[in-house]
Nucleic acid binder design. Structure first.
Lengths: 201, 201
DNA sequence: ATAATAAGAATGAATAACCATTCTTTTTTT
DNA sequence: AAAAAAAGAATGGTTATTCATTCTTATTAT
């Protein structure tokens, strides 16, 4: 049917809109119920479309999980790169970088992140997505964080970066499992630890 | 029926054996499949007993999840307290304490721990179990770790302990989600960060 | 000591709801 | 009118939980 380029573009746009509509609904459901207690029927209801129609845009439930994992980490990466780009001066750059993690540990977002991590333990495809963002995370840290740090013994660099990665994952866990946890206090503890890890030994 | 104390004791023992049998099977299943993809039928098969019989010892699947969460954290707590008790001298005590975390991040154990954390985000009963061990963890740190630390500004103590908690959760996440992660390297990073957090500012 | 009795332990089939996915039909767009 | 989009009923399983039943063990009566 499609002949004109405009029609094709319009069609593509609609497809993307529909995909986002499904992903938004799935995100909401997964956040509340987790991957494996959420039914396709529930997602369809929240997305306000029919069950079968979801399969027009995603091959199966697993594909939905993968796509959502990718979208989550893409958001995180974009944030870190934005922080890298427009920090006003070198001294406040580390704190600007740290402040970005408010997005990361948003109590509305964190449960799904943790669910992704847990799922990665048994779903190799999800593990691959996690592995990729992990690599990117380290790259960004090396490029934009290490130059701001004190003199670190070369043999310790990997361990210090690993500790920062651990801290960022730990925040997700804490904010999800402990409803009392205050995001600002977690960021404060994170800041303290990161500054320690970036200082000369 | 039961009158004699011996018979009663024997019965109790059998009950406990059976409960452990179920919990062991459930732990194995949950580890591989997660809470909500594991069926009671599967647990029964692994435990080598009938489906219906499980319900003699646990009210439902949820009770199984709770019991397992408790058992996991009880193991962790026992370990920390053992380390506290029989460390040879003060200087090596911190490292002895850190070394205990090898149990905690055992790749066979970590996935279930992470699953528990994730489940805590939506199951209030599990959240309560997590909250309790979290409190105990901090108590133990205050009692056995802080006396070994350098002079820490009083206002920073909470943040530093929080950072250690975050690190320990982060290790679980890392070891679960990243199949390449080396437990020894994670412990090394953990040690480096903890020593930094316990040193005088 | 042995048989009869009672009670707990264990089974596995029955139930009823729910699940992911596919297929057919209807509606909307071009 | 043709094609794509959307709907929702149909399919074939799987699920947690219950229940009627049988097997084992312990106590009592003989």
């Amino acid at each position: 049917m499609v002949r004109t380029p405009e029609a094709l573009a319009r069609r593509q746009q609609r497809t993307e809109r529909r995909q986002d509509q499904v992903l938004d609904a799935a995100e909401e459901c997964f956040r509340v119920e987790g991957f494996h207690r959420t039914s396709m029927a529930r997602i369809a209801a929240v997305a306000d479309m029919s069950v079968g129609h979801i399969y027009q845009y995603f091959a199966n439930k697993d594909a939905l999980i993968i796509a959502l994992s990718e979208r989550r980490f893409a958001g995180f990466e974009a944030l870190l790169m934005a922080a890298e780009r427009d920090a006003p001066d070198a001294t406040s750059q580390v704190d600007a970088w740290i402040a970005q993690f408010a997005w990361w540990i948003d109590p509305v977002r964190a449960p799904l992140t943790l669910e992704i991590m847990s799922e990665a333990g048994r779903n190799p495809k999800v593990a691959q997505v996690v592995e990729r963002i992990d690599r990117r995370f380290r790259e960004i840290m090396r490029r934009s964080l290490l130059p701001l740090a004190g003199a670190i013994p070369p043999g310790e660099i990997d361990d210090r970066l690993e500790a920062i990665v651990m801290l960022s994952h730990g925040m997700t866990s804490r904010i999800t499992a402990d409803p009392e946890a205050d995001p600002d206090r977690l960021i404060a503890a994170f800041r303290l630890a990161v500054h320690g890890l970036l200082a000369t030994a």
